[in-house]
């Protein structure tokens, strides 16, 4: 049984100009000890997926229309508010993109990490204070006793992101969801945070969902990748297969449009056009308007996510043939 299993999830938002389907039947599963990357560009629905799992979809205007999220055998969507809150933070934890916004500016960071224990009524061995100091040491914050008493604004961006990570792993959750944790950081700091996340995943057997648009970070950290486009998963594959032998034209397009720092390329091959308007998604396959392989069928039938090889799926009528 998978640790976390999302099936046919549909999330919509009411806006003044109509209903937007942020997720259109998203299914994936996460095993213990695995890092699954949700890769997609802005508006693809990757962050909404995280919100849905964490029960953070604002309602109204948002609503989970259908689907299921099973965690450790239990259906999350039918749990009561209290039961759900108990799980979130203790067994499923979220690392936010914007650590400065996610930390409360009026409390010291040590207090905020300790809050995790207090909310869930946990009494760690040796007391809360020791646990906080140990955590800060573990995530590489020098002089933790003094730093614990400081406020978020006294930390640099990278340090704040470390503190977010400390809060997320404080209660040793089973699932860690990292929502673009490195996007706002400079490369050298980003490398530190990626390393820290890699260390954390080696520590226990937690499963990690890593949400990002950065192919490089995916290659560094992920075991398996789910590529999202316009509220759907268009391809899932293990990380090696995706980078060497992508089947969906969108995945291929993403790889081709990414310049590399270690080689010179003549010209980038961008994907033409821009992401579709969520209010007026193209009929059939949402990617067809930008797709070089699109044919008549693509406008009529939404391609289902089908198995295209051992452990990998793609949602395309005309997938790229194996390399």
């Amino acid at each position: 049984m998978a640790l976390l299993e999302v099936k046919d999830l549909q999330v919509s938002f009411d806006t003044a100009s109509g209903r937007i389907f942020a997720l259109n039947g998203v299914s994936f599963s996460l095993e213990r000890g695995e890092v699954l990357a949700l890769l997609g560009e802005s508006g693809s629905g990757k962050s909404v997926t995280a919100s849905a799992i964490m029960d953070l979809v604002p309602n109204p205007p948002g609503a989970i229309d259908r689907g299921s999220i099973r965690f450790d055998g239990a259906e999350l969507l039918t749990l009561s508010g209290n039961e759900r809150r108990d799980l979130c933070g203790s067994r499923i934890a979220l690392i936010f993109q914007d650590a400065l916004a996610a930390l409360n500016p009026v409390y010291p960071v040590g207090w905020q990490i300790a809050e995790m224990y207090r909310i869930h009524g946990r009494k760690p061995k040796g007391g809360v204070k020791k646990a906080v100091i140990d955590l800060l040491t573990a995530i590489g914050i020098p002089d933790p006793e003094r730093r614990a008493r400081q406020y978020p604004h006294e930390f640099s961006g990278g340090m704040r992101q470390r503190i977010m990570i400390a809060m997320a792993v404080a209660l040793e959750p089973d699932v860690i969801i990292a929502d673009e944790p490195t996007t706002a950081l400079d490369v050298t700091i980003q490398a530190q945070v990626v390393d820290l996340l890699a260390t954390i995943r080696k520590r226990g057997d937690a499963g990690m969902i890593f949400i990002t648009h950065d192919l490089g970070v995916v290659a560094e950290l992920a075991d398996r990748v789910a590529v999202m486009y316009a509220g759907r998963i268009v391809e899932t594959a293990n990380v090696f297969e995706l980078f060497e032998d992508a089947r969906h034209p969108y995945s291929l397009g993403l790889l081709a449009s990414q310049p590399r720092v270690d080689t010179d390329e003549d010209e980038l091959v961008p994907i033409p056009g821009s992401a579709p308007n969520p209010l007026a998604l193209p009929s059939g396959c949402a990617f067809r308007t930008r797709c070089p392989r699109a044919e008549g069928l693509c406008a009529e039938v939404v391609p289902p996510l089908e198995t295209v090889g051992p452990g990998r799926q793609a949602a395309c009528h005309f997938p790229v043939s194996p390399a």
Partner: peptide, 14 residues
């Protein structure tokens, strides 16, 4: 350091 910190989109190099 800057060059080496850039994540390369190639999992084989990991």
């Amino acid at each position: 350091a800057l060059m080496s910190a850039v994540p390369t989109p190639d999992p084989r190099l990991r």
